[in-house]
Structures are given as C-alpha cells and as structure tokens.
Design a protein around this nucleic acid. Structure first.
Length: 633
DNA sequence: GTCACAGTTGTCCTC
DNA sequence: CGAGGACAACTGTGA
C-alpha cells in the first residue's frame, strides 16, 4: 500500500505545540505532508476585522511557517488564496491527496464550510481526519452531557466536563516533519465574492490578495496588510507561537501570580504592563492552546505552598472554563448564538438601533434600524471615544488603538452602551469589538455582550457600572485617562472623571475647554457629557424591569411576527418601545421581519425619567425549559 | 413544588 | 479608609 499524501489544514490552530490534529496527521506516517492555510475571502469581506487583528494573524502565520521550516527546510506554511469550498475539490485532484487532516471548529460558518469540504473529500475519495483541541473539552460532547442544551452557566459547563473526564494534558511539538509534495496549480482560480465588503471603511486601498492563488511571488507566502488594502497596525501586541510560548515561560516562573490569580481583583486601569496575561489573542488564532494555559495554571495551584490559591471561576483555570462555556453554548445554538432574533435562550429587549434581519435566513445582516437619531449619535460618540465621560472614552480609544482592553473595561463600556446608559442593542457594540479586538472570538464576544446587557447568562440588571465611580475605584489619579485621552492629561485628579464639573479657571489651567459634542474635532477641547448618567441609569433600569416582566425571548412568536409591541405598555417612553420616526421616511421599515411600526411620535428620551409598570403583563411568558433544544444538522 | 441561598467582577451611604 | 448594609430584586441550583 502506498504511503499517504496528507494535507494538514491549519485554521484556528496556528501552532506546533499541543496540536493534537497535527499529531494525528503525522501518525498516518505520510510520504508527503502539505501544511496549508486557506486564506478565505469570506473573512476578508464578509466578516469585520481591522488592521490590528490582521497583523496579529499574519504574525502567527509567519512564525508558524518559520517553525515548520526549522523542522524541515523543504517545508513551509502554504498560504492559498481562495475559498476552501472551491479550492479543495481542485487541489485534491491536482496534488493527488489521500488524506485531509484538521482541527475541529464549531463556529457557525466553520461548520458550514467544513461540511462542504468534507463532501468534496468524500467525492474525491480523500479520507478526512478531525481532532479536537481548540477547547478544553469537545464542545459537542459538552452539549451532549448537558442534555443537548447550551451551557448557560459555568456550573453546567463544569458538571458536563466532569462527566466527560479530565482535560487532556498538552502534547509536545513534533520533532520532524515530512517533505511537502509537489504543488502544481494548473487549475482555474475561482475569484471571490467581494460585495458587500464589510471592511470597506477600514481599507485605504483596494484588495489585491486574491489576484493570484499562491501570492504575487507564487511561493504560497503569507499575505500582507498592503495586499489587503489595510493601513499599518497601531497595536503594540504582536502574534506568533514563539512569542506565546515565551510569555508562558515567564508566567510559569511566577507561581504565586498563576496560583493566586483572581480576575475580579485585577485592575482594568493598569497598562504597561497590564494586570492580566494578555494571552487571549493567541488563543483566538490558536498560537497557544488553552490546555497549555489550563494545566500550567492548575500545576501552579498544586505547587503553591502559600495561602490564598484561587479556584474557578475567578482563577486562571476559571477563565478558560468560561471560554469553553461560551463555545459549548454556541455549539448547541448554531448561527443564532450570535443574535437574539430566533434565539430561544436570549432575552428580547427592545433596544435602540436594533439589527436588521435578512428575511430569507432569519439572520442579522450587520445593518441596523435607526429608531432614534439621538441614540445613533450616542453610538457614534461611544465608538469614537467622545462621550464626554473620560473613563469610557479612554477605554474606547485604547480599544481602537491597542486592540485590547481589560475584561472589566469591556464591562464598563458594554454596560454603558446597553443597559446602563444608552439602551442600544448589544449587537452594535459586538460589531465594534469584532472590528477592533485582537482577541475577538465570536463565541466569547457574543457571550460577554449578552452577559453585560443582561440578555443571557446574567440577569442582575440593577448592578450598573458607573462611568465615574468604577474607574475611580481602580485609578484615583486617572492615569489611563491621561494616557489615552491626552486632552485631559493635565487635568486635576479631582475633576478628571467629571471634567464638566471643573470651574473654568481649572479648565484654563489644564489647557482644555469642556464644550461641544466631540464629533467636530477641535484642539484643546474635550466634549461635555452626552447625557446625565444618573438620569439614564434610572431610565434604563426601569426599562429593563419592564422588558423582564414582559419576559419575551428571541424565538417567541410575538418577537418573530412583530406583535411584541402589544405586550409592552403603551406610552411615549422611548426606552419601552423602539419608535420609528414618522418625520423621516428613510428609517421607516421596509417590510422586514422586525415589523417596526411607525411610532406615535418622535422619541423624546428626556421625558423618560419615570417608567410605568407594564399593565397586566405576564410575569413569565414561557420557561426556557418549555422550548425544544434547537437542533443543528 | 417551595424555599433559601449563591452568583467571577455595582454603587452609595453610614459607621 | 474599610466594612457592612440598603438599594431593588434577577436567575439557577440544590435541599
């Protein structure tokens, strides 16, 4: 029998260490092995992502390719610029492939993509080998042990994990790699769909990535930011497995830090160095395996002799357990995991700026309805970091520039945008994080936005982060603000969280005027706050109470057919019912699913200080357990 | 079914 | 300055 000719398909596992799937490929004892990465136009055009994250990905690929070449100078990472859906059928034939090996991926698009590829493999007589390694436990197995339901709490995840058994220990990197086979590309190069381009705004130039299948030099080299038409990255964090392992080495030496880590006690205001490990971007691209971190942390706890070793959920191990919880929730719910509409586990709350839904698929389109011009301005000011609340603005500018903010910083800005300030749909924030975060992970990002907006996973909506007090608790002097909002760098600490309260003479001394809305940039000016936070907190908590009393979820009939409004109290409060503005036909609904009625008038949020209780709304429409678990494939 | 209690990460006031 | 309780009141878990 002839020895196997194997493609190893790298995806979200850009590493050699603890790569269980790669080991499975080597266990086939292949004659030749092509390590490949399909540069999928889907991610370039139909998923949001800015320069910082692209750079991190490209770093990971350069590093991986170099590591491969170190093991075998004849080999490298072969980056192929085409959709895997069209590429594989051609390449299976052209390269006379016998086996395709890859790591399992449970993201919604990845499942669909892999189905297509597996079908092509079956048609071509190529054997497919899949191994798990992206999560601590296999997400589908977790779902099965959780009664086929999404894991909606950390205790459910832990119970399901206990039923499966111990988390596998990481395995070492291979010591050698076979040669690659020949790489003829004498087949047609399918051109990608480039419209709509969700990243059009981020590009400074047109994309040329897909002009050739093996790159401009024909050497299957790594794509560049220039080819993608993206500007240079601004983030200081860089990617790659080598760097990740170096970070791990440093961490492991600090047994006390590892063993006593408690997430809620780490400061969101600390930068250079940050108070947490900053390993999440490496997990996202698979440059480091979560099992490596898990066992390093667990071993540190076991080795720690002092007092105060931490345990889940606050410990380092707890952090990756939460990641598994979100992944298993996603594995159970499929595409609706990243939206409320059609999702039986996510609470329906009539936020401002709700998502548009594609009637054909029932999925969000990425666009949104503008039910309130005021809320739309708030959203723009939030995104650009000119809300007039320095703590929020510093975090948002840090996010844009560095591609990272501390977890509690994310809590602050997410609470502020949704249930604790603007009352804007969590999907708007989710999309901004998707664009800017280095570590953007759909499962975790969607999960955390739901958590913070009290849409799912968490429900104590009356616990509301103050854009003033929360930052002050960690950073009295406002150093994070001084760093990322330089307009305020000379402001007295007494007023730095509430600059609008500073007397004119103090403003003059600090060289900054507090005026305007921040959208017209002007030197020496920092905007006034975009609303009275205490007033907004009251409005939001009352509106949340109403939404909770009505008790709808994303898959309830009233949400699907748009009659949910009938269940909410009829009053003029903008936060109770999204109201379409009748004086602006542009925003009137164009016959889509969410059935936005033309409202009774222009929303006037300022009036909404007191909110009436819902009239005779049922305490609970339905219990979650009344729903059949949504099925996938 | 009921009830008490806990829940990774709130704020503000009093003592 | 730190601890503790009120605020108003959510869901999931387990006895």
């Amino acid at each position: 029998m002839k020895k196997p000719r194997v493609i190893f398909w790298f995806r979200t596992d850009l590493r050699l260490t603890d790569n269980v799937a790669l080991q499975a490929a080597l266990d086939l004892n292949p004659a030749v092995l092509w390590p490949i990465f399909t540069f999928d136009p889907f991610y370039a055009f139909q998923k949001r992502g800015g320069s910082n994250r692209w750079q991190f990905l490209l770093d990971c690929q350069h590093d991986l390719s170099a590591s491969i070449s170190r093991l075998n100078p004849k080999n490298q990472l072969h980056v192929i610029r085409e959709s895997p859906k069209t590429l594989f059928p051609k390449i299976f034939k052209a390269w006379r492939v016998t086996h395709l090996v890859f790591e399992k991926d449970t993201d919604a698009y990845a499942r669909e993509r892999d189905e297509v590829v597996m079908k092509a493999a079956a048609d071509a007589g190529v054997e497919v080998v899949i191994r798990g390694g992206r999560t601590l436990w296999d997400s589908d197995e977790i779902v099965a042990k959780n009664g086929g339901k999404p894991t909606m709490s950390i205790s459910q995840l832990q119970a399901a994990g206990d039923k499966i058994g111990p988390i596998p220990r990481p395995i070492p990197a291979p010591k050698s790699l076979p040669d690659p086979g020949e790489t003829p590309i004498d087949f047609e190069h399918d051109q990608p769909e480039t419209e709509p381009d969700l990243n059009a705004e981020c590009r400074v130039d047109k994309d040329t990535t897909f002009e050739s299948i093996a790159g401009p030099k024909g050497d299957f080299g790594v794509v560049t930011l220039e080819e993608l038409g993206f500007p240079s990255a601004t983030a200081s964090q860089r990617g790659g497995e080598t760097l990740a392992l170096k970070k791990m080495d440093t961490l492991i030496k600090d047994v006390k830090y590892m063993a006593t880590f408690e997430k809620p006690k780490t400061s969101p205001a600390q930068f250079e160095p940050q108070s947490t490990t900053l390993l999440s971007p490496f997990f996202h691209f698979g440059a480091l395996s979560v099992r490596t971190l898990y066992w390093a942390a667990q071993d540190a706890v076991d080795a720690f002799k002092g007092k105060g070793a931490s345990s889940p959920p606050v410990s380092l191990t707890g952090q990756v357990l939460f990641r598994d919880m979100y992944f298993a929730a996603q594995a159970a719910l499929g595409p609706v995991y990243t939206q409320t509409y059609k999702n039986p586990y996510f609470r329906f709350i009539p936020w401002h700026l709700p998502s548009k839904i594609d009637p054909a698929t029932g999925l969000t389109t990425g666009e949104y309805h503008v039910d309130s011009e005021e809320a739309n301005v708030w959203f723009r000011r939030w995104k650009e970091g000119v809300t007039g609340f320095p703590w929020i603005d510093a975090l948002m500018r840090q996010l844009k520039y560095e591609g990272w903010i501390h977890h509690l910083g994310r809590h602050s800005v997410a609470c502020f945008l949704t249930r604790g300030g603007c009352y804007i749909d969590w999907k708007r924030g989710d999309a901004v994080f998707a664009e800017w975060l280095l570590d953007y992970e759909p499962a975790c990002n969607s999960g955390n936005w739901c958590w913070l907006s009290c849409t799912a996973f968490f429900s104590q909506y009356y616990r509301c982060y103050s854009p003033i007090a929360f930052g002050q608790k960690w950073d009295k002097n406002g150093d994070l603000i001084r760093k990322f909002v330089p307009e305020l760098k000379d402001f007295p600490a007494k007023y730095i969280y509430e600059p609008w309260k500073a007397p004119i003479v103090e403003q003059r001394k600090a060289g900054v005027k507090i005026q305007g809305n921040g959208l017209e940039k002007e030197d020496g000016v920092y905007p006034k706050p975009m609303f009275d936070f205490n007033e907004r907190r009251g409005v939001c908590i009352a509106a949340m109470k109403t939404a909770y009393n009505v008790g709808l979820h994303g898959n309830d009939e009233a949400v699907l057919n748009g009659t949910w409004r009938d269940l909410f109290p009829k009053d003029d409060d903008a936060e109770i019912q999204q109201r379409y503005q009748t004086d602006d036909g542009e925003h009137a609904d164009e016959g889509e699913n969410l059935e936005q009625h033309a409202g009774a008038g222009v929303a006037g949020d300022k009036r909404a200080a007191e909110v009436k209780s819902p009239q005779a709304a049922p305490k609970k429409q339905k219990k979650i357990s009344d729903y059949a678990a949504p099925t996938r494939r």
